[in-house]
């Protein structure tokens, strides 16, 4: 009991002195000290038996974690590349479409749609097509004549005599256009040729057409139609004129077919019904077949019908 009091006193004083010192010093009690020493004894072999297994588990877990993290990292890297690229592409496409819509260069349907949606933003209606194509043409041909005219002026000034009436700057421009001072002569010659050809181009249609007309295919067309000698066309108009020859036309087409059945005698029913009134007179040879019940029956009916008709 005395020792317990000593222990408690020691605990109390230690706590007052400093808080966190080792409580080992508390064990004035020898039995308690033994007990705590036994509990704190160094590790036995049995206690440390499982080291290999635990370390193996640690290594395996680390390997697995590294693999999964690597996979995760590559995924993240792919994402880090893909996201900005797709965003940039989308932005580019949107901007391009917007610019095209603003300048009216979209296809007509799309431009119409954009105009309907964003006319407030200044998206123009689609052009009808005519203004689009001619506008670049004059604009292209516009500057060229001016340059040519200027160059032509220089050339004339240059070729007018080596008197150098050209200003120095003009000469520099001319040599630049000709690709060197030596090429100026050739350039001017080409320029003259093209300049003489160009103005003639618009005027040629009226002027050239009369001259080469005999050789070209323009005249043959009226000439062929005027002359009646052509075989394909006259064939049709000639047919109406042929009825003047009466003998051939009636004989040839109808006569050839009917006689054949009459000679054979077999196809009696068909020709008899169809051509009985017309052929009965001229073809006396087929009397028996004509006198078969069918014409006999028909004749009274026809007679009966004809009688009231005549009465009416």
């Amino acid at each position: 009991m005395r020792s317990l009091h000593a222990l408690l006193r020691a605990l109390r004083t230690r706590r007052n002195r400093h808080h966190e010192t080792d409580p080992i010093a508390t064990t004035d009690h020898p039995g308690l000290a033994d007990l705590l020493d036994a509990a704190r004894a160094p590790a036995t072999q049995a206690e440390l038996a499982g080291e290999k297994e635990t370390v193996a588990a640690f290594v395996a877990h680390r390997r697995r974690a590294a693999r999964s993290s690597r996979r995760h990292r590559t995924k993240a890297r792919i994402r880090a590349v893909l996201v900005p690229v797709t965003a940039g592409l989308a932005l580019l496409i949107l901007t391009a479409t917007g610019v095209a819509a603003r300048t009216g260069n979209l296809p007509q349907g799309a431009q119409q749609h954009a105009h309907r949606l964003f006319s407030a933003l200044g998206v123009p209606a689609p052009r009808t097509g005519n203004p689009v194509t001619p506008s670049p043409a004059p604009s292209r041909s516009g500057p060229r004549p001016t340059l040519d005219v200027a160059a032509l002026g220089w050339c004339q000034a240059w070729s007018g005599g080596p008197s150098r009436t050209l200003s120095r700057e003009d000469k520099r421009k001319l040599s630049a256009a000709a690709g060197g001072e030596k090429g100026i002569e050739k350039y001017c010659r080409d320029l003259h040729r093209s300049a003489s050809a160009q103005p003639s181009a618009p005027t040629t249609p009226p002027s050239t057409s009369p001259a080469p007309s005999p050789s070209t295919s323009v005249e043959p067309l009226p000439s062929v139609s005027a002359e009646p000698t052509g075989t394909p066309q006259p064939g049709r108009p000639a047919q109406p004129g042929r009825p003047d020859q009466p003998g051939r036309a009636p004989t040839a087409p109808p006569s050839t077919k009917p006689p054949k059945p009459t000679h054979t005698g077999k196809p009696s029913t068909k020709p008899s019904k169809a051509a009985s009134p017309s052929k009965s007179r001229g073809q006396g040879t087929s009397t028996k077949q004509n006198s078969s019940p069918s014409p006999a029956v028909t004749t009274p009916q026809n007679a009966a019908r004809s009688v009231p008709a005549e009465d009416d």
């Binding site: 020792s3 317990l4 222990l7 408690l8 605990l11 706590r15 409580p23 508390t26 009690h29 020898p30 039995g31 308690l32 033994d34 007990l35």
Partner: peptide
């Protein structure tokens, strides 16, 4: 925690087997 530790130690000191070892 301090109280529990103190009471535990006191109780251990009063344990019969430890008391018997006191004189050893």
């Amino acid at each position: 925690v301090r109280i529990a530790t103190m009471r535990g130690l006191r109780r251990l000191a009063g344990h019969p087997q430890i008391r018997t070892r006191q004189g050893v």
